[in-house]
Design a protein around this nucleic acid. Structure first.
Lengths: 165, 165
DNA sequence: TATTTGGTTCATTAATTTTTGAACTAAATA
DNA sequence: TATTTAGTTCAAAAATTAATGAACCAAATA
């Protein structure tokens, strides 16, 4: 594998780390992206990332569980293969919307626990409603994506062309 | 401080942990929320959380730096006080939009590095554009919040009343 | 200027998270 | 049934991250 790709894999590791996931999961994801085969075996991944079987086993379980990779098996072949999950993109975000709701809830709960009605109460109310509201908005936005994605992709591609001329 | 509030503080710790921040930062945030004073001193926080000066020093720096708390000093008093930052709510999210852009960029970069044009390429293109697009959408949504927030808050409050009757 | 107060820094320690590797299971082949 | 292959599990080691506490600095007071 050429150096640029190896660097890309490490870069993915760092980004995943930053996003609160593990570095190894990022690397595995990056490898699945640039490996230039539709799917690769457990052992190819282990070899590419130079990690132990145990580590790969756990990492791939993570990626599959979070919907970023999918496992597949082929008839007459006992290996497990993995590939980037072609899951509906909106679903990836839908999972994260829960975080907004959780934040909204804890802010409201804090507001309810307060005994004094002050500046901070006002802010807590506002912040809580904001997080509920933005969760709702994101739901709508994702639906829009799913309806209009062809058009949107087209527009972005046109735009990219323009800027590269 | 009553038990319910102490539990709330720990709950905030767990949530912050889940969101990829530190538990202590969550606790300090929770304390600022429920302490029922507009602002509290470094030492009140240290006492409430039963942590070392060093730990509080670092934690408060974190909270201030991420815009979740603000430090203030009072004339004729050499202590530093902290309170929940009444920062424009939209700004908290604006910071996070960068994450979408970063993801979009790494997906596009991966697509560019690929030598084969396949299913995965299609998905990468789509996923990358989606993340750029949703960043743009969020920008718009936050502007809408800032324009209409009175109305939105009113609506949510009406709604809350209805459901509690 | 000396002392006290309020907080920061940073090396050490503690806790947590990741990774490894050896032992194991389960399925396929011989 | 015995062997090989593919992967999982889990305890121990390694690495990373957070917390402590002692030494320190700077500003305010005596």
């Amino acid at each position: 594998m050429d150096n640029e790709k190896l660097m890309y894999i490490e870069e993915c590791g760092l980004l995943f780390d930053k996003l609160g996931l593990t570095r190894m999961a990022g690397r595995a994801f990056g490898y699945l992206v640039v490996c230039d085969e539709d799917h690769v075996s457990f052992d190819q991944i282990r070899e590419a990332l130079k990690a132990s079987k145990g580590s790969i086993s756990g990492t791939m379980k993570q990626l599959v569980q979070t919907g970023m990779a999918e496992a597949l098996s082929l008839p007459g072949d006992r290996k497990t293969y993995y590939r980037i999950s072609k899951v509906k993109i909106g679903d990836l975000i839908r999972q994260r919307i829960g975080q907004f709701t959780e934040l909204a809830e804890i802010l409201q709960k804090g507001d309810d626990l307060k005994e004094r009605d002050d500046d901070t109460s006002d802010w807590l109310t506002e912040a809580s409603i904001f997080h509920y509201w933005i969760g709702d908005q994101l739901d709508g936005i994702i639906k829009q994506w799913e309806n209009d994605k062809q058009k949107i992709i087209h527009q972005y591609n046109e735009n990219r062309k323009e800027h590269s001329t």
